[in-house]
Design a binder for these strands. Sequence first.
DNA 1: GTTCTATATCGATGGCTATCGATCTGTCTG
DNA 2: CAGACAGATCGATAGCCATCGATATAGAAC
Lengths: 114, 114
Amino acid sequence: MSDHAITACCAPVLDAALSSAQAEELAASFKLLADPVRLRLLSLVANAEDGEVCACALVEPLERSQPTVSHHLSALTTAGLLAREKRGRWVFYRAVPERLAILRDALGAREMTA
Amino acid sequence: MSDHAITACCAPVLDAALSSAQAEELAASFKLLADPVRLRLLSLVANAEDGEVCACALVEPLERSQPTVSHHLSALTTAGLLAREKRGRWVFYRAVPERLAILRDALGAREMTA
DNA sequence: GTTCTATATCGATGGCTATCGATCTGTCTG
DNA sequence: CAGACAGATCGATAGCCATCGATATAGAAC
C-alpha cells in the first residue's frame, strides 16, 4: 500500500509515458481508493455534520470491527487524505480534499472551458 | 477486480455518502488503476505514435511475460479503458479517455472557474 | 489509586491476484 | 498441407492485505 503521504508525482497518465517508479507510486495511491470500506470512510467523513466525525461514529455504519475501521482510518490519514485530531478520549477526522485532487489530476488535467 | 465496464455510478465521493453497493463498484474500478503495470500500459497506449499500439510492442517495455501483459490488457479492455482491434495476426489497442474521465469525476467535480 | 471507555496494536488467517510456464487458437506464408 | 508466429487461456504458486479477536494504551471519572 505504501506508508507515505500522497504527493503530486507526475504528469497525467494520458499525457506522458510513466516511468516504472512513477507508476509504482501512483498505483500505491490508487490502492487506497481500491477498497469499498475506505471509500465509504472518505465519503462519510467528508459529508459529516461539522466537517468532522468522531471515529466512534464510523464503526457502526461500516459494519466492520473497530480494529478494522481503525486500520483503514490510519491508512487514509498516513496518505494525507484524512486529518486526525485527538480530543480527550475521542479522535476526530476531517477530509483533506486537496489530496484527493492530486489523484484526480493524475487522471487527466481539467479541461479548460475557454 | 470486477469483469464489467466502468460506468458513472454515483456522485463524487466527497459530495454524498456512498452506499455500500456504490462503494463496491467504485472500488472495483480503482482496483484497475492500483497496479503499476496497468498504469504503464495505459500511458504507453495513450502516448503511442498513431494513437494505437500493437500488443506485441508492449511486452518488452513492461518487462513482464506475454501472458501477464495479455492478462492486464484484457482487464483494461473489459473495463472499457482500452479499445481492442484485431488486424491479421496482430491486435491493436487505443486509449478511451472518456472512461478514465468517469473515474476522475468520481474524485470530485471539476471546479468551475466562473 | 480503580474502573470504564475510546482507540491503537498485535498475530493469525483466508481470500484474492499478479505472475509464470505450458499449451491452445487463430492467421499468415509458402 | 506444414511451419511460424501472435495472442489468449489454463493451472499452479507466491505474496499481499482485509479482517478478526485479543490485548495494550491512554484518558476521564470516580
